[in-house]
Write a protein that binds this DNA or RNA. Structure first.
Lengths: 123, 123
DNA sequence: CGGAATCCCTCCCGATACTG
DNA sequence: CAGTATCGGGAGGGATTCCG
């Protein structure tokens, strides 16, 4: 309440940094941010590209990103309506890290799968 | 099915890289890995350090990390029992990225909070 | 086309109690 | 001390329908 955290304690759930991490830990946020890496995208494009996401979750995730200042929402007053989403500079700074995460996931996938197989095999 | 992914499609939920990302996106995994950064820790130490985690979730998370080859579990045949958890090399390679995430969360917290305030304020 | 709103259900997770 | 087992509440998230 006093926000006098001398050292931000990620392990304290009241700490803001933990809340930020929680957002990153969100299942869809990472995917949406990565999907926006190449540049602005329309709502429908995102929906089509991200496998398994529902309309509801996509909207909800986009709102969350917008709220946290990671993405912007631009409504074009045309008909039919057109809405573009784009990463902010803040969002792009996060993108760098997330891209690293994606690279890690891709690069170490074989090791992870091997470890899983080993673990599952041992009775 | 043919695992001939020229480019691993993170957006396809069947893709292994996405599953790896899902694990990273897990609420507790990141915190546990970071807690293990400094070196081996006992079960009880982890439980005490990570605020808000339940016994069940801690065990479950540790099992998951162990399964994916990110951490090892060492049981000492003493009495009372003592169990140490330690990051593997694979786990440590991930740690680097997660530390970056923590730094980002800490460093950009003010901007995120400001963005939130702005968003919530606009009617 | 890009949502908002509703319903509904799964399963995540926490609390508790018990075991080796 | 380091777990497993069990139960129950509640939020997360999917499918559907309707609106601007």
């Amino acid at each position: 309440m006093e926000s006098k955290d001398v050292e931000p304690d990620l392990y304290d759930r009241r700490c803001g940094s933990r809340q930020v991490l929680d957002r990153i830990g969100d299942r869809w946020s990472v995917l949406v941010v990565l999907a926006l890496a190449a540049g602005p995208k329309r709502y429908g494009e995102l929906a089509g590209r991200i496998d398994g996401i529902s309309q509801k979750m996509l909207t909800q995730t986009l709102r969350g990103l917008e709220r946290d200042g990671l993405a912007t929402r631009m409504v074009h007053a045309t008909v039919p309506p057109r809405v573009d989403y784009e990463l902010t500079e803040l969002g792009r700074s996060l993108l760098t890290l997330l891209a690293g995460l994606r690279a890690w996931a891709t690069g170490h996938l074989p090791e992870v799968e091997a470890a899983r197989a080993r673990y599952d095999a041992r009775t």
